[in-house]
């Protein structure tokens, strides 16, 4: 078999010790977010989103861009929890991603204590509706993203009102009560049938009967 690509040197074991694992799904390929200013321009536009997320705790943008910004925000919080505020590379990272410097204090003093014992991801993402008709021109600027899939990204345990309404508990609704009782009765009958069969089997083993002969 001929390999199309040469496998890279495996360094995951060492890297895993250095960098805390992300708790969100990682896309197989990076997104091609085109920007006039190249890669740095792309990172700068993402950092504006990360800054807005840390400042407002909830941002709204296109799904693809937000899902990319989400990974960087997750990484930033995870590293901040891991190393704290006396670690030079972490401070440099925070300095790059947070364009407003007072947010560096918020990261270490508010977000790190909030998420230190968390076992799930630090952010949460929702799909948002596209507002039709999508106006492409808003305040004289071309809004090329207006008719793309929209999303909402938020930090968990934020003080804002929840995005989704609290679900109404339906456990005690009449159809669920009826189905739950039917399920209970079915499993009880099944268990009793099994016990009865086992009892019968034991009895036949103990008492093979006088007229049963082995050829």
């Amino acid at each position: 078999m001929k390999l199309l690509y040469r496998p890279r040197t495996v360094v995951t074991a060492e890297v895993a010790k250095l960098i805390p694992a992300l708790r969100t799904a990682i896309r197989p390929k990076p997104l091609k977010l085109s920007n006039e200013e190249g890669t740095l321009g792309k990172l700068n536009s993402l950092s504006r989103l990360v800054t807005a997320l840390v400042r407002d705790e909830r941002v709204e943008h296109t799904y693809s861009t937000l899902s990319e910004a989400r990974d960087y925000a997750e990484r930033l919080i995870a590293v901040a929890i891991e190393h704290g505020d006396c670690h030079q590379p972490t401070m440099e990272l925070a300095d790059f991603w947070l364009k407003e410097k007072q947010l560096v204090h918020k990261l270490f003093k508010v977000l790190v204590p909030r998420f230190r014992d968390s076992t799930v991801s630090y952010t949460k993402m929702y799909k948002a509706p596209i507002a039709y008709p999508a106006s492409k021109y808003e305040g004289g600027n071309l809004q090329a993203r207006a008719d793309l899939p929209q999303a909402i990204l938020e930090l968990r345990n934020n003080p804002l009102l929840p995005v989704l309404p609290r679900p109404t508990p339906t456990r005690n609704w009449i159809h669920n009560v009826l189905l739950e009782e039917a399920r209970k009765e079915y499993s009880q009958e099944k268990r009793m049938g099994e016990e009865f069969a086992a009892l019968e089997r034991m009895q036949t083993m103990e008492d093979p009967g006088p007229d049963k002969e082995i050829d």
Binding site: W173, L179, E181, A182
Partner: peptide, 21 residues
Amino acid sequence: GVALPHSILMNHFSYSILEKR
């Protein structure tokens, strides 16, 4: 008999379980 309110719709298979019971 068995019945469901007007506002609750149920799949016919699930309903047949209730009828059987």
